[in-house]
Simulated assay, not measured.
Amino acid sequence: MSARWIVLVVLAALALAAAPAAFAEGADKGFAGLGAEAAGFDRPIPGTPLVFPRDLGPHPGFRTEWWYLTANLEDESGAAYGVQWTLFRQAGAPGDEREGWANQTVWMGHAAVTTATEHLFAETFARGGVGQAGVTTQPFRAWIDDWIFEARQEAPGAGLDAPGAALSRARISANGPGFRYAFDLAADKPLVLHGDQGFSRKSDDGRASYYFSQPFFKIDGVLVLHGRKVELSGLAWMDREWSSQPLAATQKGWDWFSLHLSTGEKLMVFRLRDGTSRDFCAGTWIGADGAAQTLDRNDITLLPLSETHLAGRVLPVSWKLLVKSHGIDVETAPVNGASWMATSFPYWEGPISFHGSHEGKGYLEMTGY
């Protein structure tokens, strides 16, 4: 082994040793420490306008953020697949970012592929300051190792200041044990700002994040699964969120739904589970034309219907979901009830279908169980 490779191995070991600790700080206070105190870090402020393409990029003053994409896909026979691509950034300490290996930022990547019979996933870590992972805005590019989510080109005639113009065409790629994929993405509608123009409340005592999505991606490309190449196409949803303490200390996790209705509308709802008081619900109704409406918390009802046992936990994988103002009364079912992400901070994430007053497909994420 050359001296260069020895150095790389040692540096990688140091990064991996530090990464889980950075993410786990305060892990007993909300899912993965998101309810822990965040002294010295920036806080979301109501009325702060989001600016693009700047806010596609990282926010070093905040402790935690992520770039998150999930996709509902089908092959030529109509069989359902799910794909996930996620990059997380976590700051271990507040203050200006330090250079090189003194940098206090840790990056974590998750990738997954789900079928009716399998759920495959991979996890990777990187230290900040050395180029192994990061995000740039002009052009947009998010990466960790050789996993990439990047803009392909600007939308014809759209300026960089148009929300979503810098990400109207993109590509993603990732790989893990038993899988690799590469997909192209295209959206013809602008980004959607959740909550109050992107200020997304998470609790009654003022916890919040900045949160926006691109729920109108169409996606197609190739998945290689155990050496077998499969051409897939479908719909994808990108979430972008950042904060420093988005959860209250008593909130241990969430149940989050992103739904593509067959009639073209989109729906995002979530419930933050609180061990001492009323659960906090929020959501956004998105018209087929891209117009968004913030939902009142009392307009949303989420009821578990059936449970499964995974990794020593009991998880509600089927749900009844109601949004009274839009006549939504549906029941969801997982493509694969065993879509467990056995990562450093384990959670359930997988594609779902739904039927009832409306039909369609989407994704469900459940954390903190």
Rank of each mutant, 00 (worst) to 15 (best):
L73W: 01
R63C: 02
P190Y: 04
F257K: 09
S209T: 13
A165Y: 01
W66N: 11
F149Y: 13
A342C: 02
S344T: 15
A155Y: 05
Q138S: 13
W5M: 11
T250Y: 02
A248M: 09
I286N: 06
E37A: 15
D145A: 15
V83G: 03
T64F: 13
Q104S: 13
P46C: 05
V135D: 01
L191R: 10
G206W: 04
M341I: 11
R180P: 01
E118A: 15
S357G: 10
D239G: 12
T124V: 12
L8T: 05
K324F: 02
L223Y: 10
P60H: 04
S243A: 15
E154A: 15
M238Q: 13
T137M: 05
G164N: 08
D274I: 13
F216K: 08
G227A: 09
W101A: 14
A158L: 09
G368Q: 07
V10E: 01
D145C: 08
W147H: 14
F52D: 00
M1W: 01
R273Y: 04
A165N: 03
S318T: 15
D145V: 11
F88K: 10
S325H: 12
S233T: 10
R207D: 05
W107T: 11
G206A: 05
L321Y: 06
L160Q: 07
L69E: 01
G178A: 10
S203V: 02
N298K: 15
F125Q: 04
S77I: 03
Y68E: 00
L295P: 04
E74S: 15
H110G: 08
Q197F: 10
W340S: 02
G57M: 06
A338G: 05
H358P: 04
A208G: 12
Q153D: 08
S77G: 11
W254L: 07
W319C: 03
A170I: 06
E76R: 15
A38E: 00
A126W: 07
L259H: 12
F41L: 04
A170P: 11
E265T: 13
N298D: 12
S233C: 11
A142H: 10
E150T: 13
D255F: 06
G57Q: 05
D220L: 09
P60G: 06
E331A: 14
F125C: 06
R89I: 07
D96L: 12
W348I: 04
T105C: 05
V9P: 00
A102I: 01
F270V: 02
D329W: 05
A36M: 01
P44I: 04
M1G: 13
A236E: 00
P53G: 10
S213T: 15
D28G: 14
T301S: 14
P316C: 03
G360K: 00
S173C: 08
T86M: 07
S213F: 03
V335W: 01
D146F: 06
A39Q: 10
E25S: 13
L50Q: 06
G195K: 00
G234N: 08
Y347H: 15
R141D: 02
A288W: 03
D55N: 14
A116I: 04
P304Y: 05
T115N: 11
T124E: 12
A112G: 14
E25A: 14
Y211M: 09
L247Q: 06
G206S: 06
L225V: 01
R180K: 14
E154N: 14
A292D: 01
G234V: 07
Q197T: 11
D296R: 15
R127F: 03
E359R: 15
